[in-house]
Amino acid sequence: MAVVTRGFGGRRPEPEHQIPPGQFVVQDFPVLSAGPTPNVDESRWELTVRTETGEGTTWTWDQLMELPAEDVVTDIHCVTHWTKLGMTWRGVPVDALLADVETSADFVMARSYGGYTTNLPLQDLLDGQAWVAFEVEGEPLEPVHGGPARLLVPHLYFWKSAKWLRGLDLMTSEDLGFWEQNGYHAYGDPWLEQRYA
């Protein structure tokens, strides 16, 4: 067992609500970004899904809004140790964007306005596990939190939920994204504490 830190009692997380190891519950909504916040107006926002053969399908903001959206209530876990419980998001399931896409790829690179990237297995974006989210707690998503739209993949650490989403590139092999090249884990399961490479 670990050393005991003399004089440290700590505050216990609320019982009955399990959170991943090494996390603590916050009430506010912390912001972590590697650079400046890009301001992307909805009028020029686009999202492109590109297959491994280079074929692209693009949605404008209005086209995204025409797709069926879902409300998602979920906990969010950040690799910097904070967890925010019971957040309410609204977004379009990634399944809807990939429904008509022909691919044999197993991996995806999510790309953001501003240049951020993050890699995910394709299967982690399917079957109601991931959304293109544009509202949180009933309000439009602010730019500082990734608005107008961000990826939402709540079962992985939050750096996988790319802010300012502009593209999903399907890949036949696993390339690493921005933080994954800078010391963070390629997959990022919070329950297995996959923080660092």
Partner: peptide, 22 residues
């Protein structure tokens, strides 16, 4: 960062570390 990008610093040359919520 708003002031810096307004001055013309390329966003890719501005690295940030934040703490706290918004």
């Amino acid at each position: 960062t708003g002031l810096l990008t307004g001055l013309g610093h390329p966003p890719g040359r501005v690295r940030t570390e934040r703490f706290g919520g918004a």
